[in-house]
């Protein structure tokens, strides 16, 4: 099977499993809903204030929610020694990795699409700047979180207390991406400055870390 074939079949398998169980998307949705409600109680912001803090709020909620999906990525492949089977098969490791990244990317993007209206309603958000740029930021930012997250999930699955390990190694590395996402979102919502630098930074971050992940995934998969 070609690399594209492997990616496609793994991705379709994951999507089908998620469609039938809806484990990841339901827990992510409920989790970010809780964050929206709790933050709203905690800060009780006016429309003007929420425009300033919403960027941080939205992305922190999505970051924490994404960890839920990321932690499940490889866990189900451990049962029945699927990963070992994959290791001895001639299929290219990066095809498997890309399938997992694309799957997580789709889950988190769907989550963001479903949650965005709720944020708008609860925080009375009205953007001053161009809204279409928010879509660009969401796509680039989600890729930044998910590509490293999927990779680190593969790392942390081989450690003790793996569920807690993933955020501990993912968050420090993700700080520049998170900063870019939050600041770009805030500058669009308030319309005070241009998000161009942040979008470029996200693009650079995505390219660099996608390359590093693809370079190193094979050795992580074969780690023994």
């Amino acid at each position: 099977m070609s690399a594209v074939g492997v990616t496609k079949s793994t991705l379709l398998k994951d999507l089908r499993m998620e469609w039938r169980s809806k484990d990841a998307i339901n827990s992510m949705l409920f989790f970010s809903l809780l964050v929206v409600v709790i933050f709203s109680f905690a800060f009780n912001p006016t429309a003007e204030q929420s425009r300033l803090i919403a960027g941080g709020l939205i992305w922190v909620a999505f970051l924490f929610a994404a960890v839920v999906a990321l932690n499940q990525t490889w866990a189900r492949e451990l049962r029945n020694q699927v990963l070992d089977a994959y290791r001895v098969s001639p299929a290219p490791p990066n095809a498997l990795f890309l399938a997992k990244v694309l799957g997580n990317f789709l889950f988190v993007v769907v989550l963001e699409a479903l949650m965005a209206p709720l944020f708008v309603v609860f925080y009375q958000l009205r953007s001053v700047g161009p809204v279409w740029q928010l879509v660009v930021i969401a796509l680039l930012g989600t890729w930044a979180l998910v590509v490293n997250g999927t990779f680190f999930a593969a790392l942390s699955i081989r450690t003790r207390s793996r569920e807690i390990m993933l955020p501990l190694i993912l968050f420090p590395i993700s700080i520049p991406a998170l900063l870019a996402m939050v600041d770009a979102t805030t500058s669009i919502l308030t319309g005070e400055s241009s998000p161009d630098f942040w979008i470029k930074l996200l693009l650079v971050y995505d390219v660099i870390f996608t390359a590093v992940c693809l370079l190193l995934f094979e050795s992580v998969l074969n780690a023994e």
Partner: peptide
């Protein structure tokens, strides 16, 4: 976080 990973792996 690197040291934590070393500890937990």
């Amino acid at each position: 976080s690197y040291l934590i990973l070393r500890h937990f792996a």
